Amino acid sequence: MRAVVYDGPRSFAVREVPTPEPTAGQVRVRVVQTGVCGTDLHLHEGRFMAAYPMVPGHEVVGVVDALGDGVDGVEGVAGVAVGELVAVNPNAACGTCEYCREGRALLCDALTGIGSNLPGGFAEHVVAPAAQVFSVEGLDVDTAVLTEPTSCAAHAVDVIAPRHGSTALVIGAGPTGVLLAQLLRGSGASKVTVAAPTAFKLERATALGVDATYLMDRGDLAGDVQALLRRSGGSGYDVVVDATGAAVVAEVLVPLTRSGGTAVFYGVTDEEDRVAVSPYDVFRRELTIKGSFAEISSFPAAIAAMRSGRVRTDGLVTHRFGLDDYGLALEALRSDRTAHKVVVVP
């Protein structure tokens, strides 16, 4: 089969590799399409658990085409059969470390990720444990390919635990920001605002049910902060989330958070990034600072939200590339202001 293979940071090629065979308890999936996200840009640079040789791609939707021993295909471990459209949860925990034994598997000392330290979905086939494969039959593939980012957003809502009647501000209108905004709106927040510097993304957020939007300057973040505070009524927002992963943007979380509120680091930054926070401000205004990292058990909730229409994805996919154009897909994600969700179709 053909796959994108990295030998090291920024060094990749599309090459022929052996088609994987599912071992006991595994499922093989013929990839239909795989989403490209900001994490893939970090992996491209050798960050975020990258292990070489690496086949990236963690937002996988495809069709089951082979089953390993112990997966019977009718009442299998994950309830999937050959020919079924599925999404693959990339993340798994060891089950034995102190965090796993405490029931906090996402903090696992030995977390594995399909598409980072295990072969991923920028390939014609991928294998995964059956327990990490979920049926998305009946969903459009352009919705199903957003299962993983929707599950990350579902986990973030669990972390945030918004108070009913609260206000929320999501900074960033990429796919994950728009998905998170929808879930916050359906989980107790009375009004959700999305702020971003790209007008067409804000228009898409409005079309998908977000209450309010704000077009940021980003060249004048101080001005953006003042404008957003005015829009909040002057006191800020009960929940403020950075969904950009840009440290300079994350630095405005605390100033925009209402006293007693919660600031959330959600976008993927680089490990060496730093932001300045006034401990006195956090202390005096009794602020809560939280982080939300990926997900490990939120696929059922994400799929249910998409099936019910609580999460809508219409129009989010804007760009498609073949495997041979994987480099162009990364560049579109990095710098094409007309790109929203980018997918690779093997």
Rank of each mutant, 00 (worst) to 15 (best):
M1D: 12
M1T: 15
R2G: 01
R10N: 05
V14K: 09
V17S: 08
T23F: 04
G25V: 11
V31H: 04
Q33C: 12
T34L: 03
G35N: 02
G38T: 02
H42N: 11
L43Q: 15
A51Y: 00
H58I: 08
E59K: 03
V60F: 09
G62E: 00
G70V: 03
V71A: 06
V71Q: 05
G76H: 03
G83D: 11
V86K: 15
A87E: 13
A87Q: 11
N89V: 03
N89H: 12
P90M: 07
G95N: 04
R101E: 14
L107M: 13
L111G: 09
G115V: 11
N117C: 08
G121W: 12
F122A: 04
A123Y: 03
A128M: 10
A128P: 08
F134W: 15
S135M: 09
G138E: 05
V141Q: 00
T143K: 14
T143H: 11
V145Q: 11
E148Y: 12
S151Y: 00
I160R: 01
A161R: 13
R163C: 10
T167K: 04
G172N: 08
T176D: 03
T176L: 15
V194D: 08
V194G: 09
P197Q: 11
K201M: 05
E203I: 00
G209Q: 12
D217L: 01
D224R: 13
V225I: 14
Q226F: 00
L228N: 08
L229C: 10
G236I: 11
G236E: 12
D238A: 07
D238I: 13
V239R: 10
V239M: 09
V240P: 05
D242W: 02
T244K: 00
A246F: 01
A250V: 12
A250K: 03
E251I: 01
L253F: 09
V254L: 15
F265N: 06
F265S: 13
G267S: 07
G267F: 00
V268P: 04
D270Q: 12
D270G: 09
D270V: 14
D270T: 13
E272G: 10
Y280K: 08
R284P: 02
E286H: 11
L287V: 07
I289F: 06
I289N: 07
G291I: 02
P300E: 03
A302R: 02
R312I: 04
T318A: 09
R320Y: 01
G322K: 06
L323N: 10
D324N: 10
A332T: 14
K341G: 10
